[in-house]
Design a protein around this nucleic acid. Structure first.
Lengths: 113, 113
DNA sequence: CCGTATCCCAAATGATACTG
DNA sequence: CAGTATCATTTGGGATACGG
């Protein structure tokens, strides 16, 4: 991994644990980012349809986390029935773009297996 | 996310949950991959030094998982004292390469904050 | 040195019901 | 529709001690 900003002799040379990485390292989070990225803008119910393994409460909690981290925005429309749209921020889109090669690799690998 | 192999109307269009993604989405796993990638080959104790937040048992368990997924190899030398070297497989190195932009983004972002 | 075995605890998720 | 609240449960992870 040449070029990676990391002096190999420093015990803390690796990309250290932090909030975003912790968040990414939680169930469904990469999936959520991916689904939002693919849709551009997406409603809560749609997310549930796409990630049926995640419970309502978990999905909701992770979306809150993502919003708090500034990776997604939540737009609420006061209609009846209510409608809420989630969308990636510029920052979130940047992350999604970097995540894509990883997800493609995961997909390709599963296909091989 | 144009170009991502995913039809947006399919409820399962996103990169689906699978074993590798689950593994990546666990505490310290991306860190472990990164540390091994940076070192090329690394001993257990060194990994512990680099990721002090992870307990011995957790580190050991994740390394087993990574080996089972074919992402790292474990080479044991019957010396006294014993020595074990972990190394990325070709597959693991491929993943690490794709992970790098993500980790750089995480690092850069933390630096901004 | 490199782990595994145990036990324990906290955190994280699931299920469900209910509300604006 | 889009959640929140609550409760139960699992699972993951920490600490420690011991074995090869």
């Amino acid at each position: 991994m040449e070029g990676f900003d990391c002096a190999t002799d420093d015990p803390r040379c690796y990309c250290p644990l932090n909030d975003v990485l912790d968040l990414l390292g939680r169930k469904y989070v990469m999936d959520i980012v991916c689904v939002v990225a693919v849709h551009g803008t997406v409603r809560f119910g749609t997310l549930e349809d796409h990630i049926p393994a995640a419970s309502t409460s978990t999905l909701s909690a992770r979306l809150d986390d993502l919003e708090a981290e500034g990776l997604v925005t939540r737009e609420q429309y006061d209609e009846i029935p209510p409608r809420v749209e989630y969308e990636l921020t510029d920052d979130g889109a940047d992350l999604a773009e970097r995540l894509r090669p990883v997800l493609e690799w995961v997909q390709a690998r599963e296909h091989r297996a």
